[in-house]
């Protein structure tokens, strides 16, 4: 098992879990728009199904901000 953080909360995941699986499991509403950074680096949406996590990774889910 891997220990990760998601928006500051500790979560557990199996090794080789993909980012999109984590998001599907933990996001309250996957249909709401969001962006993701891992360890402070933005991850393009096309990479969600190709990105594996490693021990200690910090996942940050950002809600978009377009207000002016």
């Amino acid at each position: 098992m891997l220990t990760l953080t998601l928006n500051g909360e500790t979560i557990q995941a199996h090794a080789n879990t993909l980012l999109d699986q984590i998001l599907a499991e933990y996001l309250e509403n996957i249909d709401l728009p969001f962006a993701v950074a891992i360890n402070g680096v933005f991850v393009p949406r096309q990479q969600y199904t190709k990105t594996t996590l490693k021990q200690g990774d910090s996942i940050e889910v950002l809600s978009p901000n377009v207000g002016g």
Binding site: G40, F42, L62
Partner: peptide
């Protein structure tokens, strides 16, 4: 805080 945004 800042996040790094690489060119896609």
């Amino acid at each position: 805080h800042s996040i790094v945004l690489p060119k896609n």
